[in-house]
Every structure is written in C-alpha cells, then in structure tokens.
Write a protein that binds this DNA or RNA. Structure first.
Lengths: 239, 239
DNA sequence: CGGGGTGATTGGTCTATGCCAATCTTGGGG
DNA sequence: CCCCAAGATTGGCATAGACCAATCACCCCG
C-alpha cells in the first residue's frame, strides 16, 4: 500500500482534469471515471465528494457533475451585509423567511442569554436567506430586543436590517463582536442554501452593542464555506 | 423511502446515545452498531463520520470510537494567539517546525503579493504548530518582510511572535485585517493536527500593518474547526 | 408544429464483503 | 516479575452491485 489512500490520488487526478476547464463544464460521469481509472464508483464518489465540499465541483442528480460555480465571492462582514456587499460591487438581496414579535419563554433560552433578557421580555426575530447576485450565500437569524412597531414593513421596504434599525427606530450599533466557527450543513441548511448535507459552513454569530454597551442585536448566520469569506479589520488595542 | 437518508437517522440515534456520556467514553464498535441497528457498516461509518467531523466523536484505528474531546475551546484571535490565549486562562504553546530567512523568488508568488515585495526582497518565514493545553489547535505560517538578524533565537526564547517583533526588532503592528474561510484538511494538516483527512478547518489569514500602513506581517493558519473559535471585536466605523 | 409523456441517463443511498493497518490483549519465555 | 511476541479486535480502505429519484432527450401524438 502506498502512503496515501487511493481516493486521494484520484481526487488529484480529477483536480488536474478540471484545472483548465471554464466554470460550469460537465465532467465525465462517476461510472465512466471509475471505469477509466480502473476503480469502483464508491471510491470515485469519495474523491468527488471532497472536491464538492471544497466548492471545486457541484453535482446534480440526474444531470451530472460540473466544474465549480462562478468563483469565490469575497464579502466583507465588517458592519452590515447589505452595505458592505454593495461597496464591493456585489448585488445583495434577502429573502425573508419569517418575522416574529416574540416574548421570551423557555424555548428562547439561547437568545435570552445572549441578549441579557428575562422571561417575558419582548424581542423581534427575523430569519432570512442572504443572496449575492441571486445565489444563496447564507442563512441568518437576527434578534433585536424590544417591541418594534411596524418592523416587518420597514424592513421589507429598506432591505437592510441595520438601516431599518438606524432610520426607523433610532437604534445605533456602534460596536460588534463576531464569532466564527465551522459547522456542517444539516437538512434545512442544505435545502435552503442548495448545498449537500454535511457541507462545511461558516457559522458566524454577531453581538451588536450601542453606545451604552447594551446588546441591541444578536445574530447567527450560516454561510457557504466555499462562496464566502469573512473579513474583519481591527485597530490593535494592545499597548 | 422516507424524506431523510437512513444514515442521518442513525447519526441522530448515536447522538442521543452519547449525549449523556462524559468525554472520552468508548462507544460500541462499528460492527456492533451496524448489527444493532440492522444496517450495514458502511452506513454506520457515514453517520459516525459526520459526528467526527463535528468534533462530537473521535476514532482511533485499532482502539475504538470515543466521545468528543474536552469541549469547545474559545480562543480570541484579536491581537495575538499567545497573548489572547493567556488572557482567558488557556495555556498556549508552539512547536516550531521551520524558520527560514528567504529572498523572494518565483516560488513565493503568493507571499510576495500579499506583502508587496519584489523579486529578491528578503523576508522571514516561520511555520509553527499552535497548541492549547498541549493539544494541537492549528498550523500557522507567518511571514515578516525584512532581514531579521537572530530572529530564530529571539522567537524561541520569547515564544510569542508579536512580542519578539515588538521587543527585539521594534516592529509594531497597529492594525490587522483577518480573513476567515473554510478549508478541508489535506494529508499534512491531518497528520500535524491529528484530525482525519477532509475534516473542516478554519483558514485564517492575517495581514498586519504598522503606523505607516505598510505590511509588516502576513500569516496563514489552519485551525481545527471544532476546537477553535475566532472572535473579532470591531468598533463600527459607519456613520 | 407544439406539447407532453416515456424511457434512458446520472447522481444518491445502501448492502454485503474482503483485506489492511493500528492497537490492544494475552500468554509464554527470560 | 517484566518484557515482548503473536493473535484477536477495531477502525480504514476499497470493491461490486442493487435500487431509487431527479433530470434530460427524444419521439409520438394531437
């Protein structure tokens, strides 16, 4: 046995094959590749599986396997998805899945903890799919403490959560703390983001503070690992 | 056929099984689970595979499959690994794999681009494994432009790259830009970080600037997705 | 000429099985 | 009593094949 698994060798060979192809090119079928390489379809699928997870290939049942999507999508996440995406010539949009004015109960333990809320306190929760140039990039759930009258209408009109909070409710976020971890796509995320189950995602949670240091926003988002890049610029506070 | 794949159901059942177990507990063998659930070992392996990728299980050939490690390790990456890790009561250390004083040639295209260097310009490159409480957390390669005399010795003594630059070479980093993406572990990363090939990692690249806006550091790191959390705190610059 | 149905194609999932490599266990020899 | 060698156990890799579901192309019918 050689050092590396066979499937890894085939992965590299496929990587060479697709290196020069334009995005969206159809590659040979799994059965054909297995035959060509003299291996089994299972092994080819494992090789292709990793390339898919890396965003270098996409596969569609019944159709075929194609070379990677439109390419990497750099998106700054420094202040707001909408505002930053525009700044780099990217067309952002959102599809609102759900807006609710809620009151904290036992099912909101996580939200309450992050926003320092108690049982019965009001907050708004918005669930959205974030799109870039029409393609789904991420799934975001934002929570804002308080009772926000007519919030849904304002948000739909402006498109941007931050703009809505600022212009319609006088809520200004002056400092944010972002946390980034990895996460694997579950059934819901896979469906909404159009990726395979188990695909690596970036889980980005954000806590927004106002001038008085109060939490005025808490958001959790899951973004496609291969299409998204989180960027933070920080003035070093160290002496 | 139900909506969800079978392996996903088994994954959830295994998740329940291990929910109450302390970290490090041995779970039944793959063959036993396959028999119990009335399915094939292949399917069980797929279920366990995802749980491993999520950090909930670890498996060792010849030994068995065990419940997840010591739990999530929050690490701030705001200024410096060493300094921040200490601040939250975590014992950081590094294992230096390689230190080189180099001059830009054709093989350093990426490095040169990020540091705005030209052919022949000198820079130092350090490759380290970052450890937290003795466990490998990440693999980092740092590049610093310039000719740094006695750099290796100073770094080994101080342990911290930032402290070395500051104290021994008068290089002060006042602003950093961090980029975060996902990345799957390749053979080398898998070996050094003690994770499986294909495990999701956080790829964190950092560009450090001095007061004059010059690039004085460029670093790329790969960190275990399940043991690491990137945190950035930003004063919103938006009007 | 247009539209819809039908079958071939292709990826998605699962089974059953074999062998390899790392680890652990056990027992015998020094 | 300790150490180590050999066998049993366990995960790691790969094979061959079956059936399902989504898609696509083509042909037939209106």
């Amino acid at each position: 046995m050689s050092e590396l698994p066979k499937y890894y060798g085939y992965k590299m060979r496929i990587l060479e094959m697709i290196a020069d192809l334009p995005p969206g090119s159809l590659i040979p079928t799994e059965r054909a590749l297995a035959l060509d390489f003299g291996t089994s379809r299972t092994t080819i699928r494992k090789a292709i599986g990793e390339l898919v997870a890396e965003g270098k290939l996409t596969r569609t049942q019944g159709s075929g396997t194609y070379t990677g999507g439109p390419k990497i999508t750099h998106v700054r996440q420094l202040t707001s998805f909408t505002e930053d995406a525009k700044a780099i010539g990217y067309t952002p949009s959102s599809e609102i899945l759900d807006i609710e004015q809620l009151h904290v109960d036992d099912s909101h333990a996580v939200e309450a903890q992050h926003m320092n809320l108690s049982h019965g306190d009001p907050f708004v929760r918005v669930k959205r799919v974030r799109l870039g140039n029409g393609e789904p990039l991420g799934l975001e759930t934002a929570c804002i403490p308080g009772e926000l009258e007519g919030f849904a209408g304002h948000l739909r009109e402006r498109g941007s959560l931050y703009a809505t909070l600022r212009e319609d409710f006088g809520i200004r976020i002056t400092e944010v703390e972002d946390g980034v971890e990895t996460h694997l796509a579950g059934p819901e995320e896979a469906r909404l983001l159009k990726v395979e189950m188990g695909s690596p995602l970036l889980r980005i949670d954000r806590t927004g503070f106002d001038d008085d240091g109060r939490v005025v926003e808490w958001t959790v988002g899951h973004f496609c690992g291969d299409r998204f890049r989180f960027v933070a610029r920080t003035r070093a506070a160290v002496a």
